[in-house]
């Protein structure tokens, strides 16, 4: 089955892409780029670098701009999926949704209306096992944004390794965050994945941080050999 992956550049959509590749044919990545940083549907930090990730994965990218206004975003997403269907003959869509009923239900409706399959391989997964699997299978992930207590500025750009995972697990107990950041507590950016043909090297970044909210914006990056 030819599939398009709704791709944000974060760990969940990247993992879902790799999982889909194990069983089906992934023919393109699909990205909606919101202009509004407070997008209801879409991950935003470093979204403009998905082009480099698509190149690293050797996959074509369908990119659509969105004003990032609630519900209108859905029309933009549907437009992006239709483009993928028309240009790459996709028969289904893959998402990295884990817990968000808001996201999952809306994407399911778009797929139903377009007569496409919808796959969510991380849906209600065991979060601890999944996070450990990311590290064990060679994903190279950095924290690209923090949006809740108790994250301090040191988290911006930090690698999601076993030590960071241990700290995140502690925050689930002390501050009630979701381990995977599905509640929007933090966002990630993938520099390397098992299916990437090249890895991304960050060559410049800027950070901004106030009151437990911060972003790590990549300003320069390039692909390097693995």
């Amino acid at each position: 089955m030819r599939l398009g992956v709704l791709f944000s550049g974060g760990k969940d959509s990247t993992y879902a892409c790799g999982r889909a590749m194990e069983m089906e044919e992934v023919v393109c990545l699909i990205t909606v780029r919101p202009q509004n940083r407070e997008s209801y549907m879409f991950h935003t930090p470093n979204i403009h670098w998905v082009r480099l990730q698509a190149e690293a994965a050797a996959l074509p990218l369908i990119e659509v701009e969105s004003e990032g206004i609630e519900e209108e975003e859905l029309r933009d997403l549907a437009r992006a999926v239709m483009l993928a269907r028309d240009h790459h003959a996709i028969e289904g869509v893959v998402t990295g949704a884990i817990l968000s009923v808001y996201q999952a239900a809306r994407i399911q409706k778009i797929c139903r209306d377009l007569d496409l399959w919808c796959f969510n391989p991380l849906w209600h997964t065991d979060e601890a096992s999944y996070m450990q699997r990311l590290i064990d299978t060679g994903f190279h992930i950095i924290i690209s944004g923090v949006f809740s207590a108790p994250f301090d500025e040191s988290w911006l750009g930090k690698e999601l390794d076993i030590r960071a995972l241990r700290e995140l697990s502690g925050f689930t107990r002390t501050h009630g965050i979701t381990l995977t950041g599905e509640g929007g507590e933090y966002e990630t950016f993938v520099l390397d994945a098992p299916f990437f043909e090249k890895r991304i090297q960050v060559e410049g970044a800027s950070t901004e941080y106030h009151n437990y909210h911060g972003r790590y914006d990549i300003t320069a990056a390039r692909l390097v050999k693995k």
């Binding site: 889909a20 991380l122 849906w123 209600h124």
Partner: peptide, 12 residues
């Protein structure tokens, strides 16, 4: 034919 759904509907 499309076992990707197993992750979504059986494993949870």
């Amino acid at each position: 034919t499309h076992p990707l759904s197993r992750d979504e509907f059986v494993l949870p």
